[in-house]
C-alpha cells in the first residue's frame, strides 16, 4: 500500500524568533529552518509501517518554496521513497495546502495520508481536518498509536479526557501527536542515497489550485515580557496579595 506524507518547512524549534520592525511577521532571514517536528513523527510512522511490511511506497510532499527541497531530501534520507514539491512563493495557509493535497491524493491514490497535527510556526491544526473534509476520507487526528490491518486503520487518539481509539476504513487521514513515536536520525549514507531519489516539482496551476492566502495578517507582536517576581514576608501577605492585587482567589 501507498502512504502520502505531507510535511512543512518551518523555523527550527531551537531558534528564538524576532518580530520584524514593521510588525509584518517574524524575521526569517538566515534563520535555521527544519522539518516541523510533528511532520518528522509522520515520516517516522510511515517508515515504521514500511519496515513492518505494511507499506510498500512512501511519497513525501510539501507545498512551499524551492528551499523546502531540503526538508524533502531529509524525509527521503529518513526512508521516504520519492518526493513532490508543489512550488509556490505564496505564504501557505491550511485551506490552500489542503486543496493542493486533495489534488495530489486524486493523482497518487494513496491508501493512507499521515501528516503532523500542526506546524510549530502558525500552530493552526487545520490542514489534516480540511483535507479529510475535501476528499471525504475518514480522519483520525492526534494519533498516539496507529495499526493497519484488513483494509482498516485503528488510531488511538489523545483527547482531553484520555485516549480514544477509532477504526477507519482506508483510504484515511491520520494526524500525528507527540507520543506516537520517537523519530530516528538520518544516517550519513542515507543522506547521500536521498540525493538520488526522485523529486518532482509541480506548480499549483498544474494541480488546478489557487494558493492565494485567504487570511490577512494585520500585525505581529512579541508576547509581553515576563515581569520579575517579588518576595513576600509571610503567608498572610501572600494570601492578601493573591486576593486583592492579583484577584485570583
Amino acid at each position: 500500500m501507498k502512504v502520502l506524507v505531507p510535511i512543512k518547512r518551518v523555523v527550527d524549534y531551537n531558534v528564538k524568533v524576532r518580530v520584524k520592525a514593521d510588525q509584518s511577521g517574524v524575521d526569517l532571514a538566515n534563520v535555521k529552518m527544519a522539518m516541523n517536528p510533528f511532520c518528522e513523527i509522520a515520516v517516522e510512522e510511515a517508515v515504521r509501517l514500511k519496515e513492518k511490511g505494511v507499506v510498500t511506497e512512501i511519497v513525501v510532499v510539501t507545498v512551499g518554496s524551492k528551499t523546502a527541497q531540503e526538508q524533502l531530501r531529509t524525509a527521503m534520507a529518513l526512508g521516504a521513497d520519492r518526493a513532490i514539491l508543489v512550488e509556490t512563493e505564496e505564504n501557505t495557509q491550511p485551506l490552500g495546502v489542503a486543496k493542493a493535497l486533495k489534488a495530489l491524493v486524486e493523482k497518487e491514490s494513496p491508501d493512507l495520508v499521515i501528516l503532523g497535527k500542526q506546524a510549530i510556526d502558525d500552530d493552526n491544526n487545520q490542514t489534516g481536518q480540511m483535507l479529510a473534509a475535501l476528499t471525504g476520507m475518514p480522519q483520525g487526528t492526534f494519533a498516539s498509536e496507529v495499526n493497519v490491518a484488513d483494509g482498516k486503520v485503528s488510531v488511538t487518539r489523545e483527547i482531553d479526557g484520555g485516549l480514544q481509539t477509532v477504526e477507519l476504513s482506508l483510504p484515511a487521514v491520520v494526524t500525528t501527536d507527540l507520543r506516537l513515536n520517537e523519530p530516528r536520525y538520518a544516517s550519513l549514507p542515507n543522506i547521500m542515497k536521498a540525493k538520488k531519489k526522485p523529486l518532482d516539482t509541480v506548480s499549483p496551476a498544474d494541480l488546478g489550485v489557487d494558493l492565494t492566502p485567504r487570511v490577512k495578517t494585520l500585525k505581529v507582536e512579541p508576547p509581553a515580557e515576563r515581569q520579575a517576581g517579588i518576595k513576600v514576608a509571610s503567608v498572610e501577605e501572600l494570601v492578601d496579595k493573591l486576593k486583592n492585587e492579583a484577584k485570583v482567589i
Binding site: 527544519a34 527541497q69 531540503e70 531530501r73 531529509t74 534520507a77 536520525y185 538520518a186 550519513l188 543522506i191 547521500m192 540525493k195
Partner: peptide
C-alpha cells in the same frame, strides 16, 4: 562531486542534534 550545500547542511544538522 556528489555533494552540495544540502548534503553539507544535512551532515551539520545531524551532528548538532546527535
Amino acid at each position: 562531486g556528489d555533494h552540495s550545500r544540502d548534503t553539507f547542511n544535512a551532515v551539520l544538522d545531524l551532528a548538532h542534534d546527535l
